[in-house]
Amino acid sequence: MKRPRHTLHIVSGKGGTGKTTLAAALAYALATEGRRVLLCEVEGRRSLTDLFGVELHGAAEPRLLRTPAGGHVHGLSIDAEDALLEYLRTFYRLGIAGRALDKFGAIDFATSIAPGLRDVLLTGKVYEAVRRQAKGRTDAYDAVVLDAPPTGRIGGFLNVHEAVSGLAKVGPIRDQADSIMRVLRSDDTVVHLTTLLEEMPVTETIEAIEALAPTRITVGTVIANMVTDTPLDEDQLLAAAAERLPLDLPDLTQSERAGLGEEFATTARREQQERTCSQRLASAGLPMVVVPRETLGVDLTTLGSIADTVAAQLPEEINA
């Protein structure tokens, strides 16, 4: 079995661009024959539960689905408080005292009040899952996909060094942050940014690329989602946008044809905008994956076809 090119895939994007769906599709695509892939969410939105119909509680990593290729996708909802308790257990062997901390409200206090600690704990858990492979553990994964916070917060979220600068300059948290940062900056990690081909999401994507530059974490691809992607050429689009491209549909009534023509014009105008946006993104110099709009909404069946679309455009990344 070949290894995927990157072990850790971090997916971010503006709200409403389909970040969770694309993270799930990427995990699906990476789960080729015999592979185990972990899909993580960090903000407890139940998005994965909604999509897969599987409850994610505590530290459990249940299987979300078996791909037709024969790989497995598992799911994990990372919670900062659980992560801190686990951290205390692992590093301080604090079983009972950990629970005492919780009772005193200290866990809530620490994860909420200590600047940056929450992000270190969340990324720390992802780091732990990634590291299992090097340790030869049986619960290791071939790839970990993180459904990360949206682009507006991604720079801060991944800049764990900066985050703990308010905490002690030395000590276990600092060491932990250093280790996480090493993995994030390594060749094993890549960030994917999801966007729509609309002005605001494209602007945010370009801003996110700039925000990530100082972290020295690799941004791999921009995934343009819900793209209109018609086979029409520029002249046809121009004519359609102006409602001057006749539709030869004799089965429809006059008014149906007129209504359809108006809708067609809107589609054409949107595609013209999308092509402009696409050019803007191209100037960022990153490879772009294009995911066409799903006709009937996203469910597990369409997720498979989105995964195929992504895999076809990222053969080296998937490395099946």
């Binding site: 200290a106 009040i113 600690l117 000590g171 276990p172 948290i173």
Partner: peptide, 22 residues
């Protein structure tokens, strides 16, 4: 005694300066 452990753990994890500041 319980709180003693709590406090010393917090200090170790967060660094004593953070708690003092808070």
């Amino acid at each position: 005694a319980g709180f003693g452990i709590v406090l010393s753990t917090m200090n170790r994890v967060l660094g004593s300066q953070v708690l003092t500041d808070v």
